[in-house]
Design a protein around this nucleic acid. Sequence first.
DNA 1: ACTAGAAGTGTACATAGTACATTTAAAATA
DNA 2: TATTTTAAATGTACTATGTACACTTCTAGT
Lengths: 234, 234
Amino acid sequence: MTHIYSKYPKHYLAVDCIIFGYDIAEKELKLLLIKRSFEPALGQWSLAGGFVQENESLDDAACRVLCTLTGLSDLYMEQLYTYGEVNRDPGARVISTAYFALIGIHELDPEIRRRNGAHWRSISNLPDLIFDHRVMVEKALQELVAKVKVYPVGFELLPEKFTLVQLQNLYEAIYLRQVDKRNFRKKILSMELLDKQDEKERETSKKGAWYYRFNIEKYKELARNGFFFNLSVN
Amino acid sequence: MTHIYSKYPKHYLAVDCIIFGYDIAEKELKLLLIKRSFEPALGQWSLAGGFVQENESLDDAACRVLCTLTGLSDLYMEQLYTYGEVNRDPGARVISTAYFALIGIHELDPEIRRRNGAHWRSISNLPDLIFDHRVMVEKALQELVAKVKVYPVGFELLPEKFTLVQLQNLYEAIYLRQVDKRNFRKKILSMELLDKQDEKERETSKKGAWYYRFNIEKYKELARNGFFFNLSVN
DNA sequence: ACTAGAAGTGTACATAGTACATTTAAAATA
DNA sequence: TATTTTAAATGTACTATGTACACTTCTAGT
């Protein structure tokens, strides 16, 4: 029974993680990249990846890779696409399933990051990446743009408390264009998914900007009743 | 150089095709299913599938499976999702990438279909499917609904010449709800992507309904200039 | 000529999207 | 303590899109 498929070939199977972070201060989207520590392409920039083991599912493999690198669990992650060109990896034939993850840069301990040879690199100034990783990143970016329009996943990139200015800057960094302040606020506030806090952020202005929190419970409730998040402004 | 990854396990890799067709007469979406001809689950209903060979890419494998079954090439097909649960196939560990394809039922020669043990089954009355194929079908359906709203892929399911009534019936079959006739026509015609023919379809009414053709060249031109197809009516 | 059945058509109203400039708050400085 | 500076906060008029809704036209068959 275990050899019924034995006339078919087997293949190496990998997962690669496109890990996005958002730098509030620099108002820039970043990618967590590693310097590859093994051949082929040792020393070159690469996505975080790993081979799928016998006893783990694809999703488990992706979680393992992400968790090993960041020390974090329960991060936002979803499967993106599977890359199966015959010669995509010069070392051997490897099929790779790409996952994309969103994490708050503040969540990742710089010490752990450094120890794992990982670096935050600006989306607007990426180094050359090995194999087809650049293609994966492009697809992930497209997916991110499409996703934040229609699902409240942008909040995964921000701290629990954030200001409306920060939220808008995040959307501008993802959309790569300016959005109108009043229209943006009108739209997001009309959804009534943000809870205003009694506290202000005072780093970036004298007046200070009110902190808000995303109310995920309220979102789930609304979504159950057919509500659709939409933040495609201007 | 060929054994650098040799400490990692290898896996069987399959592709499965979710093949949609549309029955104009019955106004129903259909799936092309096969009776499985090998163990395990011999004789049960299954998606068309096959193992990925050494020298072929994932996409090539999916095309091969689709082409072998239908005798057709250049069909609409895209990768959907990769299923990697450890025990999804009781025969052995097999990771499977699902593809979804759209074909006009009229395109498929019934003789070829019969010879390959394939059958058109209504979406609304599917038999039990092996393994996780039902999950794949559900995801493909979701994807189809989302896709036809925003890309002109519905035309892949119709003959070259079709009437507005047929097009609307198709959308109703996919959306699983009625749409308003006047609004539907207003919207699709305002895009100016349909070329009215000098000929009428006369099977279903005394008056006859004008045939139209989808002008794909015009669509490509418009899309290049930032036009977005949208047919989410009512 | 009349009937029956599906194809084809337009308008008024409601909702959502967009463009746009001034006021407010508070720390820093004169 | 009055003034300056800087970013946060706010509302309205207009445009475009979406939606609800019912009658007329065409033609084969009787």
